[in-house]
Design a binder for these strands. Structure first.
Lengths: 148, 148
DNA sequence: CGGAATCCTATCGGATACTG
DNA sequence: CAGTATCCGATAGGATTCCG
């Protein structure tokens, strides 16, 4: 394997397929950060999951998530809206009813939620199945030049 | 479609394939939360990405992530270790050198990182391509019984 | 070189109370 | 019913300093 003069920042094409992914800091435009920002925050994935089933009203969401406080769904929904992941409309008439639903962009988060579940389940299984994975013994003790 | 007496919490099998996924709060054992916890925190995904390429020393990591402060990588690495995602061994001898590398469990995060990038890139593209997605106009005005 | 300890600040999450 | 406004405690992140 050829190593260059200095940097061997070998960018993995699977992890960083584009040029804009080659950042050395967590800038907001970095795609991974964008996706994380979309699902970040307590209750966010649960709200999204509910909305994946279809539209929900404000109270309807709170019913399904009983332990959520008053402010949180408001905050979450507002952020999700600002990001274009959720939209709402008001069904006027009686006691005002608002309907929240995912936009196409929001619906696009579905594969990510599935992958999050899958990964988390796998990690949990690994926890129970095997030991803490102290791979120390598997490490080779090469003490060559530090490289840089 | 059969609806039961009260709850029509139709659980999407893709989103919630198992019984333990049927939670109404963000409990730590909920797989999605497990996965999110693994990649949560500033710089975490970047650290993981570096380690995906292979082992790194403490200083090596800081070199690659210049703007990271001293405490953060320590904290991140410790947390990742506690979760069994990273392991380290010390290459004794001269100025002590420590080698961090992913455990098999840590390497299992790779698909998630890829999916995060993919999703984030898609969201960004949607941002640039289309308007803020005020789908209000696209919402159908069904004013039937709220269901519950 | 590789950390641990300490301090400080910004932000988040939650509870409560009030408004449209 | 559907929010908004305010307060507050907990925590995360960053800088700095010191120790193995």
């Amino acid at each position: 394997m050829a190593h260059q003069t200095e940097t061997h920042d070998d960018w993995d094409d699977a992890l960083v397929p584009e040029e804009r992914g080659r950042t050395s800091r967590p800038e907001p435009a970095y795609p991974v950060e964008v996706a994380l920002a979309a699902v970040a925050g307590r209750w966010t994935t649960l709200v999204l999951r509910k909305l994946m089933h279809g539209p929900h009203s404000f109270g309807s969401l709170r019913e399904r998530l009983p332990e959520i406080s008053a402010k949180v769904p408001t905050e979450r929904l507002r952020v999700l809206e600002r990001r274009g992941l959720v939209a709402h409309d008001r069904l006027a008439g009686f006691p005002v009813r608002t309907r929240y639903q995912l936009t196409p962009a929001g619906a696009a988060l579905r594969p990510l939620l599935i992958e999050l579940y899958r990964t988390g389940a796998a990690l949990t299984a690994a926890d129970a199945g095997g030991p803490p994975a102290r791979t120390q013994a598997a490490l080779s003790g090469r003490s060559g030049s530090p490289g840089k």
